[in-house]
Design a binder for these strands. Sequence first.
DNA 1: ATTTGTGGTATATTTTAGTTACCATTTAAC
DNA 2: GTTAAATGGTAACTAAAATATACCACAAAT
Lengths: 122, 122
Amino acid sequence: MESSVKTDSKGRKKVYNACMEPCAIEKGMRLIGGKWKGSIIYHLKDEPVRFNDLSRMLGGATKKMVDQRLKELEEEGMVIRKVISDRPIAVTYELTEFGRSALKILDDLKVWSETHNIEISK
Amino acid sequence: MESSVKTDSKGRKKVYNACMEPCAIEKGMRLIGGKWKGSIIYHLKDEPVRFNDLSRMLGGATKKMVDQRLKELEEEGMVIRKVISDRPIAVTYELTEFGRSALKILDDLKVWSETHNIEISK
DNA sequence: ATTTGTGGTATATTTTAGTTACCATTTAAC
DNA sequence: GTTAAATGGTAACTAAAATATACCACAAAT
């Protein structure tokens, strides 16, 4: 459905099919678009990765950020947390099928981003 | 380049090719992924749209948000602002070629988001 | 004179991101 | 045997966004 604005005979405007809260794109962005979220998913694409390794790979993101995003991704069913050993505690994170289904978009984004070599201010 | 973590003979870890600040995916997300940004671009896909019409279409986003995002998008070269008349002031926003180049990704995201019918908490 | 339209801005509040330091535990080097 | 680095996090705090609510000057129609 397309949202559109119609003007009636008296010049008054009404919106049809407005995105009432988040429309499909907004929803998708909330899953994939949060800060560091795309990167996290992308770094898990090949194999399960450990928490600290993941934090190290994402230079610029703090452990708290990584932790927070991973929890969100887990809730959203895109990532699974697995405790692979007690005592020397070890945890890995890996993608679910759903998580994996987002990889194509992220890959396209990566290519797009690279071909337009983007400058970022902050 | 793939980022990876290597363990040396003494068990010490080092990261190679870490995403030092924002890697390609992060960069792309900064352009497209900000709150409401994707939606704005998508609503401009067919034709130039006026400021207030755009605000109306994006239920949930305040005018301030729309204004702020449009300015960012303008700076980033994805959108052009055109004053189409003074006195009764009228302004339209339309996509540049660069802005248009992002539509495919947004469209894929939309389809992905729709096929996985996502629930959003907040 | 009131309402509706135009394209915004100012102010304040709430939410999120990011920084820094710290926990308990284990293994290995000096 | 003590220091150093690893493990996976958490607590407390500050800085930066997002959001809400009003409001501007101006124009045209009711």
